[in-house]
């Protein structure tokens, strides 16, 4: 669409801008302010420059948390993206089954995040949880409070349960926008099921998949409530992700300077990845416009 050049459009944006500025810019400035100072109390503070940033970047506990975070985000993306595409392909397209399937598939997305943690805590306990109890009956000594492997596997399973639906719904809407004529043409050419997927369905899905991967990446990078309720970050610190480290530091220990520096590093990592995705989306839209 050809847009008209008109700077009066700013007036339409202004109310939104003021509100978002109030809830984003002012707090962010506070964080920047703290990150370069050492605050003792309301009246005593020293300028420290980049000291907190150096300290945070060299902190082995935080480096480990960053690595864990990336390992977690990449693992869940590797599982949820193919699984979500698969589910979108087999979801019923018409009739009451389609409505029922849509509502049931959407359900996990609408459960408050700490309740998701509670659901899985109840589900996986060895004494009263169906999954924990079944695994123990089968002879596996399943225990998420003492075995890091079990804790990791459970958190990943929980995230797959919670968020695969998002990818599935995105792909489902992408698939529904493919005209029937494409499939008929493929049938005439005796295209195999794989060829139909590779050359008709997958190209249509790239657009929604970029959005899906973007949303999944950023949400998994901010994950807090679910592992906090389920494992509390343990055993040890094996499932302590970035948000939890930060919250402990900022609220628990009241280390304003270091936690502010950490916040900014954390935010910058997300920003960098987002920028890559955003550029990709914009280029794709440009290509689409050229094609149309």
């Amino acid at each position: 669409m050809n847009k008209v050049y008109n700077n009066r459009a700013w007036w339409l944006i202004l109310p939104m801008l003021l509100l978002v500025a109030f809830s984003a810019v002012i707090p962010l400035m506070t964080v920047v302010n703290y990150s370069v100072q050492d605050v003792f109390d309301a009246n005593t503070r020293f300028f420290t420059g980049t000291e907190w940033f150096k300290e945070m970047l060299n902190d082995p506990a935080l480096q480990a948390a960053v690595l864990r975070q990336f390992a977690f985000s990449l693992t869940i993306l590797a599982i949820e993206v193919p699984l979500g595409i698969g589910i979108a392909l087999i979801m019923p397209k018409k009739g009451w089954q389609a409505s029922v399937a849509l509502i049931l598939v959407t359900m996990p997305l609408l459960i408050p995040w700490n309740v998701v943690g509670s659901i899985w805590q109840i589900f996986t306990r060895g004494d009263i949880g169906l999954m924990g109890w079944s695994l123990r009956e089968l002879g596996y000594g399943y225990n998420i409070t003492s075995n890091p492997v079990d804790a990791w596997a459970t958190i990943i399973l929980m995230d797959v349960w919670h968020w695969t639906s998002l990818i599935a719904l995105l792909c489902y809407s992408g698939l529904r926008s493919i005209p029937d004529a494409y499939y008929q043409a493929a049938r005439i050419d005796r295209a195999s099921k794989w060829a139909v997927f590779r050359y008709i369905q997958l190209p249509k899905l790239t657009n929604v998949l970029v959005i899906g991967v973007l949303l999944r990446f950023m949400h998994s990078f901010m994950i807090y409530a679910e592992p906090f309720v389920l494992t509390g970050g343990g055993p040890g610190s094996s499932t302590t992700f970035l948000s939890q480290s930060l919250t402990t530091m900022a609220i628990g220990q009241q280390d304003l300077g270091p936690s502010a520096a950490f916040s900014l590093i954390y935010f910058l990592i997300i920003l960098l990845v987002t920028w890559v995705f955003y550029t990709a989306i914009m280029n794709m839209q440009k290509d689409n416009n050229k094609g149309a």
């Binding site: 707090p27 506070t30 950023m218 901010m222 970035l242 919250t247 916040s263 935010f267 920003l271 955003y278």
Partner: peptide, 19 residues
């Protein structure tokens, strides 16, 4: 605008509380 969507709530916890 998009970056605000990506901001981890944990980052804003303390400034919000004070603000």
């Amino acid at each position: 605008l998009l970056t605000n969507l990506m901001a981890p709530p944990a980052v804003f916890l303390l400034p919000y509380f004070q603000l």
